[in-house]
């Protein structure tokens, strides 16, 4: 790769190679996003148990992907720009994974020295169940 001129160095136009999306495509994406918003609300009314969060985040991720790919033009952008933006999510996921993994596997026993059994991780909640008398 030569750093000093682009493959499309045919002219002085900045957008020499830039993709211009059609208005129709933008409008279709907007409609899809609005429909997905309705689905988000609808899905929140149904109890899928522990999958609730997963489903809500999955729908949000689809919406986000549409915005990133089409509105933000990432689909037609250069490889390096794509890598840069998507790697931010990758590294963010490291923060999530390690932090939440610690939380999930932590011994939430506030009396570790007296009882050796893992206890309910919501001990703070139990402790404050009758916290009304603050």
């Amino acid at each position: 790769m030569s750093a000093h001129h682009d493959d499309h160095s045919h002219g002085a136009l900045q957008m020499g190679h830039h993709h211009v999306s059609s208005s129709a495509m933008f409008f279709n994406v907007l409609v899809a996003l609005l429909i997905l918003t309705v689905i988000t609300v609808g899905a929140s009314r149904i109890d899928f148990g522990s999958a609730n969060m997963l489903i809500a985040m999955a729908i949000a991720s689809i919406k986000a992907s549409l915005v990133i790919a089409i509105f933000m033009h990432v689909k037609w952008d250069t490889a390096i720009n794509r890598i840069v933006f998507l790697s931010s999510f990758l590294f963010l996921s490291l923060l999530f994974i390690f932090t939440l993994a610690d939380h999930a596997t932590r011994r939430w026993d506030h009396e570790m020295h007296t009882t050796r059994t893992p206890v309910d991780k919501q001990w703070v909640y139990k402790q404050h169940e009758h916290a009304g008398d603050h």
């Binding site: 000093h4 001129h5 682009d6 499309h8 160095s9 002085a12 136009l13 900045q14 957008m15 020499g16 190679h17 952008d77 250069t78 390096i80 720009n81 840069v84 933006f85 790697s87 931010s88 999510f89 590294f91 963010l92 923060l95 999530f96």
Partner: peptide
Amino acid sequence: DTPVQEFQAAKLGFWLFLATEILLFGG
């Protein structure tokens, strides 16, 4: 040297900035 170079440099810089925004909100 070229408009394309200027455009791509600024755009790469801005994508990097947006990446920092993602990580800031990520916290």
